[in-house]
Simulated assay, not measured.
Amino acid sequence: MSATETIPVIDLGPYLAGEPGALDRTAQELRFALTQIGFYFITNHGISPEKIRSVFEQVKRFHAQPIEKKMALKLDNHGTGYMPMRGNTLRTSTVQAGTKPNLNEAFFVKRELPPDHPDVLANRRYRGPNRWPADLPGFREIVVDYCNELERLVQKMVRLYARALDLPAVYFDAAFQDPQFSLRMTHYPHQEGPAVDEFGLAPHTDTSFLTLLAPNDVAGLSIRTQSGKWIDAPAIPDAYVVNGGQMLQRWTNDFFLATPHRAVNRSGGERYALAFFCDATIDWPIAAVPTTVGPDRPPKYPTTYYTDYMVRYQKRTYDLLADAQAAD
């Protein structure tokens, strides 16, 4: 395979250890990955394999519950809670028309905010309380701890993104001081297919600035390269898969890619996945950074705000929310 049809592996170890020159060297690797492929693996990221395994165990515990217990926590307008099997359809996809509902179920959590937080009290969109299962001791604590670790990792990684864009390393620091994130804990049943127009997760691009997909022994992810060829993402021990989404694309004026990808579980068994979608602070204006615009390269997108963008996206994507809104 050519370099542009192979998902690169980026070792974060030297950068995270503060080795001289490692910031800019790693940033150049990141620049290549995000301008040529849109996906990369990270190794030596500092998240322990034991912690990742413990979260996967919690995901299995959650999805093993009876459907009535899961539906008691059904997805709400904040984007938290349970989405049942075939509960979303990717109508927003630019690469797959007429898609059937996706063959997966998922549980979503966002930042854990205290009950007296001003945004919670105001019922601000996407800043509401998480929905936690009552009968799974330890579930909440393990998931919240994992999200906190990934948040800290993202806050270190955005300095690489800044340098990859020829910006000062601290350029994104303030924007990600209190980042907006969502952890999607997904269960994919086995598929023989894909059947015609049926996927575990249909071809799509993420909405996020950055997505971290946890290391997984059960493969199922495929990405579409810039040549239009679909390639399978290998299962690399202890390595996260990372990609950019539509917010990154807008922030970089299409300089960095939001690459289409899909998931099909042909493993013969069950597949579970942990995707952490991370964006800037909820009120941060997303507009093209200065190094991606010029006299011959005007901004392609208006200034974007997280809440407005996600309201439009989720209304079209999540059948459960669309049905609820239609009934209001």
Rank of each mutant, 00 (worst) to 15 (best):
M1I: 14
P8H: 12
P8S: 12
V9Y: 08
P14I: 07
L16W: 10
G18V: 09
E19P: 03
G21K: 05
A22L: 13
A27R: 02
Q28H: 07
L30R: 01
R31T: 06
Q36M: 05
I37V: 15
G46A: 09
P49H: 06
P49E: 06
F56V: 06
Q58I: 02
A64F: 05
Q65N: 02
Q65K: 12
I67C: 00
K70N: 09
L75S: 01
N77I: 02
T80E: 01
P84N: 03
M85H: 12
N88F: 09
T89V: 13
T92K: 10
T92F: 11
A97K: 12
T99P: 00
K100D: 11
F107N: 01
V109P: 00
E112Y: 00
H117W: 02
R127G: 02
N130P: 02
F139G: 00
E141K: 12
V143N: 01
V143T: 07
C147E: 06
E151R: 14
K156L: 13
D166H: 07
D166R: 03
P168G: 09
P168W: 09
Y171D: 11
A174Y: 12
A175N: 11
F176S: 05
D178I: 11
F181I: 06
H187K: 13
E192Q: 15
G193W: 06
P194L: 14
E198F: 09
L201C: 15
L201M: 15
P203V: 13
T205W: 04
D206M: 08
L210F: 10
A214D: 12
N216W: 07
V218G: 10
A219E: 14
S222Q: 15
S227P: 04
G228P: 03
A233N: 04
P234C: 04
P237F: 04
Y240W: 15
V242T: 10
Q246M: 08
Q246F: 05
M247C: 09
R250P: 04
R250K: 15
L257R: 10
P260Q: 03
R266S: 09
G268A: 07
E270H: 11
R271K: 10
R271M: 11
A273P: 01
A273H: 03
A273Q: 04
L274V: 07
A275T: 07
W284T: 14
V289Q: 00
P290G: 02
T292W: 05
G294S: 02
P295A: 08
D296M: 02
R297T: 00
R297C: 00
K300Q: 14
Y301K: 05
T304F: 04
M310W: 03
Q314T: 05
K315F: 10
D323F: 01
A326Y: 04
D328C: 06
